[in-house]
Design a protein around this nucleic acid. Structure first.
Lengths: 204, 204
DNA sequence: TTGACAAGTGGAGAGTTCTCCGTTTATTAT
DNA sequence: ATAATAAACGGAGAACTCTCCACTTGTCAA
């Protein structure tokens, strides 16, 4: 669906492409003015001057729309992470994990609202958002791998996967915002807590 | 709001009490037939033969209704937990924590759907469910206290609070169901993972 | 150029959540 | 018993999500 996978036959029709842009523009405009959460798909359709059906054809819900809006930034983030891992390949795994977590949290800070929009329970009552979301899967695997390296001795594979799952959970908007607002943590404090809760800060 | 706090002036009007019962009955009936998630407040109002306004006056959303439906069981659970802690007061804190986690998970197993209903993001777009939910707060404090006991040496207060927050997060339906369905864990395996991820199983 | 037709469009409509407010009713004081 | 009155009722209606499908339009092959 993404950037017109060139490989796949037909290219996007011109009018469709134009509408896509209208939608993105309209959404951005409305989000900037009102924040992400209170803006409805309805409003976006109206602002973009298209029918509701057209909007929903392209984005099944607001979550998908938000994802499209940060797609590029997200790709950059992942590149940054990869670069970081590459550059610090000789650091102990705990350090490296902390490093990429810091990158992620910084990103989260910048795109708080949109990211929350992406996570937002897509549809109420509907078949439920059963999409693993490839980006999260990749992140999850990276975490799991680093946990694996961390104690190369025994901690079984599943153990690492589980920890990675927990980490991912803790990085969700809901938890992050709660820690910031209710527990009054700064990003860096949060990061610190997270690391010391999930792995012994051996090397550092 | 709960069980007609007797202390507080007026008792609940008879017709109101009757309607409350109608609602509870109707909801239970519909939930048993269709599961919790797909049943709408609307349907419940119709099944109970009352106006939507009447339903919403008593329960701001489905989440509150579900909470009322397991209120009693929940109270029992808490009593069980207290009893457990009392009986095993000489066990090491890790053991005790595991014990009450097991109780909680068993409860979750029994009331999976309703509990998920309680957690369900109340309203879409609305002011956001800013209710800390007293029962969760209590649980959170118990967890934090046990973490505190666990390593009486240095781990600062906030450290324990944070871990307790993470634990609570991991006990949510979303995470629990994911672990069961995708990672294919049994309740007991899940419990095992949870404990070994968050604290060294020293005493055991 | 010209069809054919897949792709795209828009808006009516079904089903929801939740509020507002005029009407009804149970309770309590007289 | 009766009236005053706070509480409760119910349904119209506003706003929303999402689907369906008759209609329009871009594209490509001839």
């Amino acid at each position: 669906m993404r950037n017109k996978e060139k490989n796949n036959a037909r290219t996007e029709r011109r009018d469709a492409a134009e509408n896509r842009q209208r939608i993105l523009d309209a959404a951005l405009r409305l989000f900037e003015e009102n924040g992400v959460e209170p803006v409805s798909m309805n409003q976006i359709a109206i602002e973009a001057q298209i029918g509701a059906g057209t909007l929903y054809r392209r984005y099944r819900n607001k979550s998908e729309l938000c994802l499209d809006l940060i797609r590029d930034n997200l790709d950059l983030l992942f590149e940054d992470m990869d670069a970081y891992l590459e550059q610090h390949r000789d650091d102990p795994p705990g350090r490296r994990l902390k490093g990429i977590l810091r990158l992620f949290i910084r990103f989260r800070e910048k795109k708080l609202q949109l990211l929350a929009g992406v996570e937002e329970g897509a549809s109420p009552s509907r078949p439920k958002n059963r999409s693993p979301n490839p980006m999260l899967v990749e992140l999850q695997e990276t975490f799991a791998r680093l946990f694996g390296e961390m104690s190369a001795s025994e901690p079984s594979e599943p153990e690492n996967v589980f920890k990675a799952d927990m980490l991912l959970m803790a990085l969700k908007s809901e938890f992050y915002v709660f820690q910031k607002e209710v527990r009054a943590y700064s990003s860096e404090q949060f990061l610190e807590r997270l690391c010391s809760a999930l792995f012994p800060t051996a090397g550092n």
